[in-house]
Design a protein around this nucleic acid. Structure first.
Length: 281
DNA sequence: CCCCAGTCCTGCGGGC
DNA sequence: TGCCCGCAGGACTGGG
């Protein structure tokens, strides 16, 4: 499930498309054929999308939380939101039937950008400058987890009395953290995922901020986590390797790397949480 | 305002 | 061997 480190890796992987011009775009085979796969959410509809993308030049790649964004020369923003199983690729996708959207570029070494999504929960959106603020502005999406200051993190996340692990998943408070990295960050910070976000001490906020940067940068270094289902890949369809460095995520029953006690799994807000009762208070 | 439960979707694995 | 069901969870919606 692409979170900040995986999406950052995708963005870096497609940096080479900057300067290229868009020729056209198309839906994947599955979306317009007799296959049983449901089409994913793409806005606006294809005819308008083609008109607004034709001949536009890509000027930058930007990441907004867990979204991969292509900035265009007229300041529109093409937004890929991978959600659970989406990938942004410059190469042949894992399977042809799950290609959802293809952006054809001017000729060169990188002829197209492919959005592939097995489960189809992902979205593709072209936003006008007016829409960018309402869809990706601070009311929708909090400060990025790599840019937020320690004070900002405390001010925003301590607003809620929900468990701190659940609060870290709220993209309006801080953007980019998902279920996997919330668990890893709280383990490194030594904070129980069940503790109310409103009840963390000043020292704990400092540890949480430091752990957040440490874990996210470390995961970016290893190009993200490719879990057991093997779905996540970078722009060249290569796996990440941070899963080999996970301390608690999906390790229920394994010994804690710090105290050797058993890692436990609980459910919070209908999602799995993994932690060490001995090391996280 | 705050928070929870339900919804979307496909592929996989457990149980029988 | 095959079928059914539950589960995975990011973002959003509806309602208490």
């Amino acid at each position: 499930m692409p979170e900040l480190p995986e999406v950052e890796t995708m963005c870096r992987g497609i940096a080479g498309v900057v300067g290229h011009r868009i020729v056209t775009c198309d839906l994947g085979q599955a979306s317009n054929s007799q296959q049983r796969l449901q089409p994913i959410s793409i806005r606006p509809a294809l005819p308008q999308l083609k008109r607004r993308l034709a001949d536009r030049q890509i000027t930058a790649i930007e990441r907004f939380g867990k979204r991969v964004c292509l900035r265009l020369d007229d300041h529109q923003l093409l937004v890929f939101e991978p959600r659970m199983t989406g990938l942004v690729l410059l190469t042949d996708p894992p399977t042809t039937e799950h290609v959802r959207f293809r952006l054809t570029l001017t000729d060169g070494p990188l002829p197209s950008v492919v959005f592939w999504d097995r489960r189809g929960l992902g979205t593709v959106q072209l936003l006008s400058t007016a829409e960018i603020d309402s869809r990706l502005g601070l009311k929708r999406l909090g400060p990025d987890a790599l840019r937020i200051t320690p004070d900002e993190l405390r001010d925003r996340v301590s607003r809620t009395r929900r468990p701190v692990k659940v609060a870290l998943l709220d993209q309006q408070l801080v953007a980019g953290i998902g279920n996997l990295y919330a668990a890893e960050i709280l383990f490194v910070a030594g904070i129980s995922p069940r503790k109310s976000a409103a009840r963390l001490t000043r020292t704990q906020w400092q540890r949480l901020h430091a752990a957040m940067l440490e874990v996210l940068h470390e995961a970016i270094h290893y190009e993200g986590s490719t879990l057991g289902d093997g779905t996540y890949r970078n722009a060249l369809n290569q796996t990440g390797s941070y899963q080999n460095h996970h301390r608690v995520y999906d390790r229920a029953g394994d010994p804690c790397p710090r105290c050797s006690g058993a890692i436990v799994r609980i459910v919070q807000a209908q999602r799995s949480t993994f932690f060490c009762k001995g090391c996280q208070k």
